[in-house]
């Protein structure tokens, strides 16, 4: 007998030691009853998705095939989906957004602040909606009245 073959036989014999390991006495008399009792109690019952996952876990090859199919479908979906430029149109304008830059103030002269929306600056560098156009005119009028005082009399 070759030395390597001898070694293999010895390894097999040592592994065979494991055959002598046994559960506690009487264990196998009780086990089927426990299993059947749990089955009759309805344990392990599962819905459609769970039974689908169970079937996949019994055959991992099916799970891999399913995963590949999903990945393939997603890739094809991304490849054939319309491009963002085409979706936005030929003018190249970006879709409307509440954060879009508002038109210049001159173009909106006839509109009230309420019509302009909250994002429109009101001429004082503030977007505070409390500052109405009436309030603004009051400030402007105040500017007109605020004439600097001179302590030197003009001769």
């Amino acid at each position: 007998m070759e030395p390597s073959h001898k070694q293999t036989v010895r390894v097999e014999r040592i592994i065979a030691l494991k055959r002598f390991e046994q559960p506690p006495p009487g264990y196998f008399h009780l086990l089927p009853d426990r299993i059947i009792r749990r089955i009759e109690k309805g344990e392990g019952r599962s819905g459609f998705w769970e039974s689908w996952v169970q079937a996949l876990s019994i055959r991992p090859v099916l799970a891999y095939a399913f995963g590949l199919t999903v990945c393939g479908a997603v890739t094809v979906g991304i490849f054939y989906s319309p491009k963002p430029e085409a979706a936005a149109g030929v003018t190249g304008q970006m879709p409307a957004s509440p954060w879009a830059v508002s038109p210049p103030r001159e173009e909106m002269a006839g509109e009230s602040d309420a019509q302009r929306g909250l994002h429109v600056a009101n001429g004082f560098g503030s977007t505070n909606p409390v500052m109405s156009s009436e309030t603004a005119s009051m400030f402007e009028a105040a500017d007109e009245r605020a004439i600097p005082v001179s302590f030197f009399q003009d001769k």
Binding site: E21, P24, L31, R34, E43, G44, S51, I58
Partner: peptide
Amino acid sequence: VYATVYHMTANHEDANDMTQEAFIKAYRA
């Protein structure tokens, strides 16, 4: 089935649980 699971887990309690669950799962499937 028990012996296979036991030799893999090297633990009686785990082997007991796994064996029961495997047979229950098999029944449902």
